[in-house]
Write a protein that binds this DNA or RNA. Structure first.
Lengths: 113, 113
DNA sequence: TGTATAGTTAGCAATATGGCTAAGCATGAT
DNA sequence: ATCATGCTTAGCCATATTGCTAACTATACA
């Protein structure tokens, strides 16, 4: 029944920012250090680091430090709760359409009498 | 290349709140007036109305007034930009995996020599 | 050792978000 | 005409978010 999944909050929130989506899009192409992630954005490093931590808390990015550079990697599996939620809504929606269908069918049968 | 789609911001943001997701889930089962939408949430009407306006701005819900009751309806088509973004990311991710694959294959061929 | 590089932390300011109460308006029922 | 119902608006408060600068740490390189 998925009562109150805080993971979904984190996921959707993380994706609601264009800068974070750009970062993710870059990481989908392969791992990158923080500076390269910041590069095209025009934002300062501390700002990018904050966005990065949001992505990490959502599980969308994993990072590890190698010497003085932090390497960031996209975690596609983290998207699953979201796609599952979407599927669930679709299911509910389609069930509703089916019921509507039945309803109309019954109406037509009634008319025939 | 989908540089900066504000619609995506609205969509993801709208879905990042559990109350709004609950409202949507209810609406997926069929249209409902505002009061029914508020019912199980425990929140006051003005609060719900605000959430509703967020959903409307994202295009996820359409409403119309019939007498003194406002009827709210889920708009599943509004989800498309999001699923398209997901597909796009998946594509990038998979292209990367393919390149990785090639890379490994080449490595193995080199070894054979 | 000294210097450049790559992050990191602390803290500020402006704005957005999410909840509320109180008061108002329009419509349906009596 | 009156009253209840269903929504709406205005405005308050606390907290979160998003950007910044300045100052700091830690690693690599000469």
């Amino acid at each position: 029944m998925a009562k109150h999944d805080p993971q979904l909050d984190l996921l959707f929130h993380a994706l609601s920012d264009p800068t974070r989506r750009m970062m993710l899009n870059r990481l989908a192409k392969g791992p990158a250090p923080v500076t390269e992630l910041a590069g095209p954005s025009g934002f300062k490093l501390p700002t990018i680091l904050r966005h990065l931590s949001v992505l990490e808390e959502a599980g969308l990015v994993a990072t590890q430090k190698d010497g003085r550079v932090r390497s960031c990697a996209f975690q596609p599996a983290a998207l699953r709760p979201m796609t599952e939620w979407l599927d669930e809504q679709r299911k509910v929606w389609e069930a509703r359409l089916d019921r509507l269908d039945d309803y109309v069918m019954n109406l037509m049968k009634e008319r025939e009498k």
